[in-house]
Amino acid sequence: MSTQTEGTRSVVIERVFAHPPERLWRALTEKPLIAQWLMNNDYEPVAGRRFQFRADPMPQWDGVIECEVLIVEPMRQLSYRWAALGLDSVVLWTLTATEGGTHVRMEHSGFRNDQQAAYQGATYGWQRFIGALERVAGGVA
């Protein structure tokens, strides 16, 4: 499921897992476990710590995603900045204990508006840019 609001786009995935929050937390915060389901990484659950996810390199991309830990609230919330290919975004995980399991909500959003553009014609941040040009291009996708 994905949502789109003024100036930002986000992807929200929600799922209930039949596992306790403690186990979810480990899978989300322990390097070798993260590597099993997401990507190779040098993550440390410390706010302010920079780390990288490493996807398979491609012809136009070295596969590196530059990240920074923003929120670490054990068993409840985890957030990191996710920057790659000019996309600066934030991933936020929220865990809620349910009967016999854990409700997990992941929101990948907040594509940041750009720093001051050197060029006077620049009117769009990344997200608005793509949205606006899709319209101009007459619904290319």
């Binding site: 000019g86 553009a117 050197a118 060029y119 006077q120 014609g121 620049a122 990344w126 840019f129 040009l133």
Partner: peptide, 11 residues
Amino acid sequence: LADPTRRAIFE
């Protein structure tokens, strides 16, 4: 398009 100047030119 990661570069704001290039985006502006394209725009």
